[in-house]
Amino acid sequence: DTINITLPDGKTLTLTVTPEFTVKELAEEIARRLGLSPEDIKDTHNGKTLDPSLTLAEYGITPGSTITLEIK
Rank of each mutant, 00 (worst) to 15 (best):
I3E: 03
E20V: 07
L34F: 06
K24C: 08
D9R: 05
D1S: 13
T14M: 09
T62R: 03
G64L: 02
E25W: 05
K72L: 14
S53F: 08
F21A: 07
D43P: 15
N4P: 01
E28R: 06
T62L: 14
D1Q: 11
I71R: 05
T44Y: 12
K24N: 05
E39N: 12
L36R: 10
G35P: 01
K42S: 13
V23G: 02
G47N: 07
G10V: 01
F21S: 12
A27R: 14
D40P: 13
T68Q: 14
K24W: 11
Y59K: 03
E25I: 03
D1C: 15
T49V: 12
P19S: 05
E70S: 05
I41C: 13
L54V: 10
G64C: 02
A57H: 08
L15R: 00
I61D: 01
L50G: 04
S53K: 11
N4W: 10
A57E: 11
E28G: 06
L50W: 14
T2N: 07
D43Q: 15
Y59T: 11
S65C: 14
N4Q: 09
R32G: 05
T49S: 11
T66L: 04
T68F: 14
D9F: 07
I67H: 03
L56T: 01
K24F: 07
H45I: 14
D9A: 05
K72W: 13
E25D: 14
S37A: 11
P19M: 08
P8G: 10
T62F: 14
V23C: 08
A57T: 09
P52S: 15
E70V: 12
T62V: 13
D40H: 13
I61T: 01
T44N: 09
A57Y: 13
L7V: 04
G10F: 03
I5M: 03
K72P: 09
V23P: 01
T55P: 06
L13T: 04
T68L: 13
T14G: 04
P38T: 11
E28V: 09
A27W: 15
K72N: 14
L7P: 01
H45D: 07
I41N: 02
L7Y: 05
A57K: 11
T16C: 09
G47V: 06
T12A: 06
R33S: 07
R32Q: 08
E29H: 09
G60A: 02
S53G: 09
D51C: 08
G64T: 02
E39H: 15
E39G: 15
L13S: 02
T6L: 15
L26R: 00
T16D: 10
D9I: 03
S37T: 11
E29K: 06
I5K: 09
E39M: 15
I61P: 01
P38S: 09
T66N: 10
N46D: 09
D1I: 15
I3K: 02
E25K: 08
L54E: 03
A31T: 06
D40T: 12
I3V: 08
I5D: 05
G10P: 01
T22E: 00
G47I: 10
P8W: 07
A31S: 08
E20F: 08
Y59A: 15
D51A: 04
A57D: 07
I5A: 03
E39P: 14
L34H: 02
S65F: 07
G35I: 02
S53W: 06
T12N: 10
K48H: 11
I71H: 07
D40R: 12
P63R: 02
T6P: 01
L36Y: 09
G60Y: 02
T49L: 11
T2G: 05
V17F: 12
G47P: 04
T55E: 01
A57G: 09
L69Q: 00
L54W: 10
L36M: 12
L54A: 12
Y59D: 02
K11N: 12
L15G: 00
T22K: 04
E29C: 07
H45M: 13
I41W: 09
G10E: 03
G47R: 05
E70C: 12
P52G: 14
D51V: 03
V23D: 00
V17S: 01
N46V: 08
T66I: 07
R33Y: 12
T68E: 12
D1E: 07
L15Q: 02
K24D: 02
T12C: 09
G64M: 02
L56A: 00
T44H: 13
P19W: 03
K48G: 09
K42T: 13
T68M: 14
K42Y: 15
T66A: 03
I71A: 06
I67G: 00
T16A: 13
L50I: 11
T62E: 11
T2M: 07
E70N: 07
E58T: 02
R33C: 09
E20T: 13
R33W: 15
T55F: 02
D40W: 15
R32V: 06
I30C: 06
D51L: 05
T22V: 01
P19G: 02
T12W: 08
G35N: 09
L26D: 00
G10C: 10
I30F: 03
K11S: 12
L50R: 04
T12Q: 09
L26E: 00
I3H: 02
T68S: 12
P63N: 09
P52C: 12
